[in-house]
Design a protein around this nucleic acid. Structure first.
Lengths: 218, 218
DNA sequence: GCTTACACCTT
DNA sequence: GAAGGTGTAAG
């Protein structure tokens, strides 16, 4: 009865997601697929140590609107494209004990988001650009370690968790300057664009808010 | 009837595995887990384009002997530790069409081998040091894309492939000097040990313990 | 609004 | 040294 499952994000990711959310998070989608940053590293508690579980991620549309970025702000702009049945991504670790899932963060870092309908890659999720989404983690209880081959009549959904601050708008190019700064500041792969680096290019909007510009501890 | 499935390794890997095999290949096992080099990048042909398959890797003991390295040669040295039920590692891409599997090499590069019994990591495989092993790829046909939750009574093993030249002896420190040279020559991560590099340590004494103190992932 | 080639970086 | 993740700028 007291089997209360709690899901959060790994501490540092949690902090980042909330910071990005406060500026209206955006995620780039590309034809070949793009990883998300911040990452989705879930931390879970309250599972039964010995029972078997599998983890599933999908990304669901947050509302029924299309968005546009206009005069420095995100605005609703008409009705959304038709919802697609969201792609279900099972965590590659497959079926494991509650103990195992609780021992380490549950990372979906192979996931890529794309705006190409015909990207057949297994860990690729299609999203409509200029639409708003929220990732959802679903926890299933299973009877068998075998991911296939054995009938599994008694699988059940234990819980499904949607963290509001992981919401983001899919874009093909970043719109909000403040957000670009955050991505550059915190994503290790964008280090080449940080102030003082030789790859530093001038950025278009010198007037953007500077609460986020102070130097990253490079 | 003519559904002849053919499995090989990616061309360059194939060349390397055969070269290493000609010197009796060795693989380091560590407590925290070590990746294999050369890598296992399988190439598969002859699947049905539209049927669904899953790929499974395991590493099986090649014989019933323990080995020792003595006077510059590998010799049998008594009876093997008791066989363990080998760990089955499903390819993280899950269930996909034959077309998808044939489009790109099937890479098991997240696999790590360990000599620690209690490494609960999902993609970690336990091996006994000083025992000899061969990786085996198994191809299963599936009826459903869902890795769990739906009964799958008709899964069947299509084929199981064991490439003899991928055989290796698990070690905690390399024994054969010729093999050390090959690892350094071909593994990009061992660049620091190449002649002329500042990281070049003297390696005159093959007697082991300095090659395990460095946990550079390979 | 979206795509591509790119320099620069991490892993 | 290889593979792959970054935002950029031009188109």
């Amino acid at each position: 009865m007291s089997n209360q499952v709690q899901v959060s994000l790994k501490e540092e990711q949690d902090r980042l997601w909330k910071l990005f959310h406060s500026h209206r998070n955006e995620m780039i989608v590309t034809k070949s697929g793009r990883k998300m940053f911040p990452k989705l590293d879930y931390v879970i508690r309250g599972l039964n140590q010995n029972k078997l579980y599998a983890m599933m991620l999908h990304i669901e549309q947050s509302d029924d609107c299309r968005y546009k970025f206009s005069s420095g702000k995100w605005m609703k702009s008409g009705k959304a494209e038709q919802h697609k049945e969201p792609k279900k991504l099972w965590h590659p670790d497959g079926v494991r004990s509650g103990k195992d899932w609780m021992a380490n963060p549950i990372c979906f870092d192979s996931v890529k988001i794309t705006n190409s309908v015909d990207s057949s890659n297994a860990s690729m999720i299609f999203l409509h650009s200029m639409h708003i989404y929220t990732p959802v983690l679903s926890v299933y209880e299973s009877q068998s370690e075998t991911p296939m081959g054995i009938p599994q009549p008694s699988t059940r959904l234990v819980t499904s968790v949607r963290l509001d601050y992981t919401e983001f708008i899919a874009v093909t190019a970043y719109q909000n300057d403040a957000l670009i700064k955050l991505k550059i500041q915190f994503n290790p792969f964008a280090k080449g664009f940080r102030e003082g680096n030789q790859g530093d290019r001038k950025r278009s909007s010198p007037s953007a808010d500077d609460s986020t510009t102070d130097e990253s501890s490079s």
